[in-house]
Computed example of a mutant assay.
Amino acid sequence: MEWIFVIIAGFLEVLSVNYMNKWQIIKNLGLKKSSTLIVKMILAFGISLLLLNLALKTLPMSVTYAVWSGIGSVGGVLVGIIRYGESANWKRLICIAMILSSVVGLKLVS
């Protein structure tokens, strides 16, 4: 159950960063700022940290944090590529693969 908490927390971190990016886009375009966007961002970050905290009660911190931040890092890059048209060059994709393999490797040796 704890690993499910970590995975959901990681995806909520990605969602939070997506909300943060939307906020910046709205701000840069001079559009009306949405307070609901900020509330969603704070809730997603808060629930993410709560779930991470619950998982850390039984899982080792080193691997748990690596998995959570790996999901957040890779997810953030993929959202940027898919949703916001950021570069998907081979160098970035290799870096994503290295992050994923490192997180899997940490889990396997723990």
Rank of each mutant, 00 (worst) to 15 (best):
I47C: 09
S62A: 14
I38A: 14
L37Q: 06
L51G: 13
L15D: 07
G46W: 04
V67Y: 04
L37H: 07
L59F: 13
N21H: 15
F45P: 00
K22R: 06
P60W: 01
L12Q: 11
F11W: 14
I47Q: 10
K40E: 05
V67G: 05
E13W: 02
M41H: 04
T58D: 13
A44I: 10
K27I: 00
L52I: 14
L56E: 06
V14Q: 01
I71Q: 00
L52H: 14
K22W: 01
G46E: 04
S16Q: 10
F45Y: 15
K27W: 03
K40V: 03
G30T: 10
S35C: 03
L12F: 13
G70L: 00
N53L: 05
G46L: 07
A44V: 07
Y65E: 03
N53H: 05
I47L: 13
I26N: 01
V63W: 08
L37K: 03
A66V: 03
S16I: 07
T36K: 11
L50N: 04
G46C: 08
L51D: 11
T64F: 00
L29T: 07
K40F: 13
I42S: 08
T36R: 13
F45R: 07
Y19P: 00
A9M: 05
A55N: 12
L54P: 08
K40D: 06
K33S: 07
I42W: 01
S34K: 15
N21M: 11
W23K: 09
T64S: 12
M61W: 06
P60F: 01
L49E: 11
I47V: 15
L49A: 10
S62R: 00
S16G: 15
G10C: 05
M20R: 05
I47K: 11
V39N: 04
L37Y: 15
S16R: 02
T36M: 13
V14C: 00
N28A: 06
K27Y: 07
N18T: 15
W68T: 02
L56N: 06
K33G: 03
N28H: 00
T58M: 05
L59D: 12
N21K: 14
L43G: 04
L50Q: 11
S34H: 10
M61T: 13
N18M: 12
P60L: 04
I47A: 11
T58S: 15
V14S: 01
K22N: 03
L29V: 03
L59H: 09
G70W: 00
M41Q: 11
Y19R: 02
F45A: 13
N21Q: 13
K22G: 02
S34A: 08
E13L: 02
S69C: 07
F11R: 12
L54G: 02
